[in-house]
Design a binder for these strands. Structure first.
Length: 271
DNA sequence: CTCCTATCCTGCGAGC
DNA sequence: TGCTCGCAGGATAGGA
């Protein structure tokens, strides 16, 4: 499901559910691994842990407790939801029981997701080597031009590389490139400064707007539970192969697999 | 270093 | 209707 906006909204949903008083009663795994092994031994130490705060880094959600931090990545199909007794679903892999009787379920059919544990005061390999957050000021044109200066790979692949900038996935990469008029196949190092500025502005704009749209559904946390797809966003190019471009009203949207991922663009608007 | 491919896994919709 | 096939929003390892 998720790129950065979706993860941010799930994080806020969890935040609103958990508040600042929640304590974990127990964590139960219905299998021993997702993509990687679940930290079942660390989970065993969690009964009684107080949840202190929720945060997000890249597409990871961090659930900080007084016994360490749970690290969640939703992969392609991961979802968190409130799951009262009797509302189990196929592919529920982990349940977090709260002391107040509620229960969170992590469901992930494809199991591309990840659940890990960070011991208090320690770092975690998954969080090393991540590029800047796209909505922070450090993600700016001079940074980006530097990061791309020796990259001959397509710009679309480059902006999806989490070491360049985090959180931009396949859909928003296509959308941001369209909005900034940059051809997705352009060698990254050939990006002009003015286009870098435009691209950064559009990435920030698109991600911010998507968070806002998703945020409006937060009160109904069930909606943060996948299946609904992205936030009813109107995509300008994504999944619009062969359809007329909304901007120039002339060209048909092209599709090409770039770096193994479907990519969409307007040949007129993106030279 | 960078680049490129394959791969993990299930579900769904298009097409026959 | 039922079946097969291709594809899906992520991330990584490993080899060139």
């Amino acid at each position: 499901m998720p790129e950065l906006p979706e993860v941010e909204v799930v994080k806020r949903g969890l935040e609103s559910i958990l508040g600042d008083q929640a304590r974990i009663a127990k964590i139960v795994c219905t299998r021993k691994d997702l993509r990687e092994e679940l930290p079942v031994n660390d989970f065993k130490k969690m009964p009684g842990a107080k949840i202190l705060s929720l945060s997000r880094r890249a597409k990871y959600i961090l659930i900080k407790t007084d016994r360490g931090t749970l690290l969640s990545h939703l992969g392609m199909t991961g979802t968190w939801r409130l799951a009262p007794e009797g509302q189990e679903q196929k592919h529920d892999h982990v349940y977090i029981y709260l002391e107040d009787g509620r229960r969170l379920a992590y469901r992930d059919p494809r199991r591309f997701g990840y659940l890990g544990f960070i011991k208090s005061g320690e770092s975690h390999a998954k969080l090393d080597h991540l590029g800047p957050e796209p909505l922070e000021s450090e993600f700016n044109a001079s940074y980006l031009l530097g990061a791309l200066s020796n990259r001959s790979t397509a710009i679309k692949i480059a902006i999806m590389d989490q070491e360049v900038v985090v959180g931009v996935g396949n859909i928003y990469a296509s959308e941001a490139l369209f909005a900034s008029g940059v051809n997705p196949l352009l060698p990254a190092k050939d990006l002009l400064k003015k286009d870098a500025q435009k691209l950064i502005k559009e990435i920030k704009k698109i991600l911010t707007r998507s968070i806002e749209v998703g945020g409006s559904t937060i009160s109904d946390f069930a909606k943060a539970d996948g299946e609904k797809g992205y936030f009813q966003n109107t995509f300008f190019v994504y999944d619009r192969e062969g359809k007329v471009c909304f901007s120039c009203n002339k060209s048909k949207i092209k599709k090409m697999v770039i770096g193994g991922r479907s990519s969409f663009w307007c040949p007129t608007c993106q030279k």
